[in-house]
Computed example of a mutant assay.
Amino acid sequence: MSNQWNSGIHDRELKQQICEIGRRIYQRGFAAANDGNISLRVGENAVLCTPTMICKGFMTPEDICAVDMDGNQIAGQRKRTSEILLHLTIMKHRPDVKAVVHCHPPHATAFSIAGEPIPQCVLLEVEIFMGEVPIAPYATPGTPEFAETVLPFLKATNTIILKNHGTVSFGKDVQDAYWKTEILDSYCRMLMLARQLGRIDYFTETETRELLELKQRLGFDDPRFHLEDCDLCANNLLRKGYQEKAPEPTAFPAPPSYPCRLRSNGQPAPDDAASEPDLEQLVQAITDQVMDALTQSAG
């Protein structure tokens, strides 16, 4: 029988991957001093994680700890991160998730502090790779209550902003989880720069629907594929997850209203004026841009 997991808690190469992501988040200013934590699930009941009170930019494989799915430490010379419950909560409720990255990227964290929702329908890469990014309510870090703040949003996103704290992103491996953080912080920086210039321009309804069709063709899921009672750009897909009032935009203009009209096969319906040849050309052009962006990010 095939094993869906990696080779286990003593795999030095996997520990080295965690250390490499730690260096990246430190070098990019996503984790100052001892901030941030990273985890990688390597067994049915085994998760590698970073230790507490260590700079993520200078870790070695010997520093990496291991815990079971209840947070009990099962290996490692150093004490495991105090925020491991957040990671384990995500993994328990999303079996597809193998890695979690939590850190404090400055531009995204600024949105966290301000309680400003992340605008949708603005940038291609964000629509393709992320979609809506919710803001989980504040709770004291390291507590069970803190870990539970992300629960209402887990089924519909792979990236969450933590109110007055930072971000958490997750995926199939540590690099995938990290990339989502990098995309988010880069986008937040662009939004701030655009705001200084005076405004942001949203995609038109036709452009938005064509991007969603491209997203589906590339194999990425999105809650907007499955809902009819929603607005494509209004950050309302996850509104039911907010126990209190959902965050409202104050720094940016309200997005345009595009209802989620879907075809019977689940694909977003394009504008009636869009012809199929034009759509094919647009899909190819956007695909080329996405692939270029991935190549540059990997480099």
Rank of each mutant, 00 (worst) to 15 (best):
C19W: 03
G57C: 05
S39Q: 07
E20W: 11
A46E: 14
M69A: 04
I74C: 11
E62Q: 08
I54Y: 07
P51N: 09
A66Q: 06
C49A: 10
P51T: 11
F58K: 05
M59F: 00
G36Y: 06
V67D: 05
S39W: 06
I38R: 08
I38Q: 05
M59C: 07
A75S: 15
Q73N: 14
N37A: 10
T60H: 00
Q16V: 00
G29A: 04
E44N: 06
N45Y: 08
C65K: 08
Q16L: 02
I21L: 05
A66N: 09
A75C: 10
A66V: 05
I38K: 06
N72L: 15
I18E: 05
P51W: 10
G22M: 12
R23T: 10
Q73S: 14
E20Q: 14
R24P: 00
I18R: 03
E44D: 11
A46S: 13
C19A: 04
I25H: 06
G71D: 14
R28Q: 11
Q77F: 14
A46I: 01
A66C: 10
M53L: 13
I74A: 12
V67L: 08
F30D: 07
G43V: 02
R24N: 02
V67N: 06
N37Q: 11
I18K: 03
I64S: 02
T52A: 14
A75G: 09
G36R: 06
C65G: 07
F58D: 05
G76R: 10
F30K: 01
C65A: 09
I54M: 13
Q17G: 00
A31E: 01
R24I: 11
L48G: 06
A46L: 01
L40V: 02
N45Q: 12
Q73R: 14
P61F: 00
A75R: 15
G76A: 11
Y26E: 05
M53F: 11
I54T: 13
Q73I: 11
L40A: 01
